[in-house]
C-alpha cells in the first residue's frame, strides 16, 4: 500500500518536472519562464522527496531527505526572488498583457 503511494508520488513528481521543463521552452519571456521553473522546483521536489521518504521508512535516511526538503523549501523561493529582483534591477522589462493564444510562444 505504502509502496503504491510512493510510486504514485514519484511518478507525478517526475512528470511535473518534465512539464516544467517544457514550460521553460514554451513561455515567451524570462519572468514567465521563472514561473515554470518555480513549478518544478517546488512541487516536483516535494513529491519526489516525499515518495523517497516513504521508501526509506522511519529512519535516519528519511530524516536526511527531510533535511534536503527543508533546505530546498527555504532556498528555492529565495533564489527565484533573487533572480527576479536582479533581472528587474538589470533593466529587463517583463512582457505584460493577455496574449490570446497567438500560437507563437
Amino acid at each position: 500500500m505504502i509502496d503504491v503511494l510512493s510510486w504514485v508520488l514519484l511518478g507525478v513528481g517526475g512528470l511535473l518536472g518534465v512539464i516544467g521543463g517544457i514550460g521553460i521552452h514554451r513561455f515567451p519571456d524570462f519572468y514567465t519562464r521563472l514561473h515554470a521553473a518555480g513549478t518544478t522546483d517546488t512541487l516536483c521536489a516535494i513529491l519526489i522527496l516525499l515518495g523517497l521518504g516513504f521508501q526509506a521508512g522511519l529512519s535516519l535516511d528519511a530524516f536526511k531527505l527531510f533535511l534536503i526538503f527543508v533546505f530546498l523549501f527555504f532556498t528555492s523561493p529565495t533564489a527565484s526572488h533573487a533572480l527576479a529582483n536582479a533581472a528587474m534591477h538589470g533593466g529587463l522589462k517583463p512582457q505584460l498583457g493577455r496574449e490570446n493564444g497567438s500560437g507563437k510562444a
Binding site: 527555504f74 532556498t75 533573487a82
Partner: peptide
C-alpha cells in the same frame, strides 16, 4: 531582506 533572513537561518 529575504536573502538576509534566509541566510541567517541557514548559516
Amino acid at each position: 531582506l529575504i536573502l538576509r533572513v534566509v541566510s541567517k537561518v541557514l548559516i
